[in-house]
């Protein structure tokens, strides 16, 4: 929906509609009751006067409603309710209330999101975090942006931009589960990775070998890629940033790209390819310098 609807206007229109209905039902109620004892001797006259007054009310309310309705913008297209439209086709009695529940839980998550963003900006002022963050983010709080609920087009743009900046890393997007992107990364002839997104937030990473098939839930049969997967999860959490999601994705991809020399570059600390006990190549990359280290050597 491009056109934002003025909620206040809509609300006042609904209120005047309600008032109109009320006054109309008042008319019918009075008519149905007919002459009452309190109308007294000249009951007929008084009754007609009362009715006239009520009808004038109806007229006033109707004019009010017409006025507010003309002030409303005309929607350009029918409202798109997304998948929730299908709920109206539900035939089971006890499930017909689902729409209200859905709206409630949507409001609830939206509120959680809002609160957690505030909490995030408050917490980032205190240097409780181990990682490098810029405390300047508090200044650009402004309008809170939803990061778990962005349009697929926006996600595509962010990911395609990253894809274009690497020659040896191919990123392809697919959407096997509704609107959320599952991104496949082919890093040279070294490894393959698959990242599941929720909006612009990364939720899951799996790294497997070049000669293995890509699967989201099955671990690699090679020790080294199981180790890289483990470290990729750590990186995903490290770069996690709900206020700047695009930066988080970009940083993660830069970090993952540094695995292009997984087998060819020795450890920066001990100078060896293989660690003497684990017999693994340096499967850790420093978050800042991207230098290779063995897990055992990174401290």
């Amino acid at each position: 929906m491009n056109q934002t609807i003025n909620v206040d206007q809509l609300n006042s229109a609904l209120t005047s509609l309600r008032t109109l209905r009320l006054s109309v039902s008042h008319v019918f109620e009075t008519l149905a009751n007919g002459l009452r004892a309190d109308h007294g001797e000249d009951g007929k006259e008084k009754f007609l006067l009362e009715l006239q007054e009520l009808l004038t009310n109806v007229n006033i309310n109707l004019r009010d409603l017409e006025q507010t309705v003309t002030g409303l913008p005309i929607p350009t297209a029918p409202f798109n309710l997304g998948n929730t439209t299908y709920l109206s086709q539900e035939t089971t009695q006890e499930r017909q209330g689902l729409y209200t529940q859905l709206v409630n839980s949507y409001k609830w998550t939206d509120k959680i999101h809002e609160y957690s963003s505030f909490a995030h900006s408050l917490l980032s002022q205190n240097s409780l975090k181990r990682s490098y963050i810029n405390s300047g983010s508090t200044k650009r709080r402004g309008k809170l942006q939803s990061t778990h609920n962005v349009s697929p087009l926006q996600v595509d743009n962010v990911i395609n931009n990253i894809d274009r900046s690497y020659n040896d890393m191919k990123i392809t997007i697919s959407r096997p589960y509704a609107s959320n992107a599952v991104v496949q990364i082919n890093l040279s002839h070294v490894l393959k990775a698959v990242v599941a997104f929720k909006g612009l937030l990364m939720e899951w990473v799996m790294v497997r070998g070049y000669n293995e098939t890509l699967e989201l839930w099955t671990e690699s049969r090679h020790h080294v890629f199981r180790k890289v997967t483990e470290n990729a999860h750590a990186a995903m959490l490290h770069f996690y940033s709900p206020t700047l999601p695009e930066l988080a994705v970009r940083s993660f991809m830069t970090w993952l790209h540094s695995y292009v020399n997984l087998f060819s570059e020795p450890c920066k600390k001990c100078g060896c390819h293989l660690h003497h006990t684990s017999l693994l190549p340096p499967a850790w990359r420093d978050f800042r310098t991207l230098e290779p280290f063995h897990d055992e050597c990174k401290q």
Partner: peptide, 9 residues
């Protein structure tokens, strides 16, 4: 087994 390119490994 994890690597398919002789040059790299």
């Amino acid at each position: 087994r994890p690597c398919v390119m002789a040059n790299a490994v």
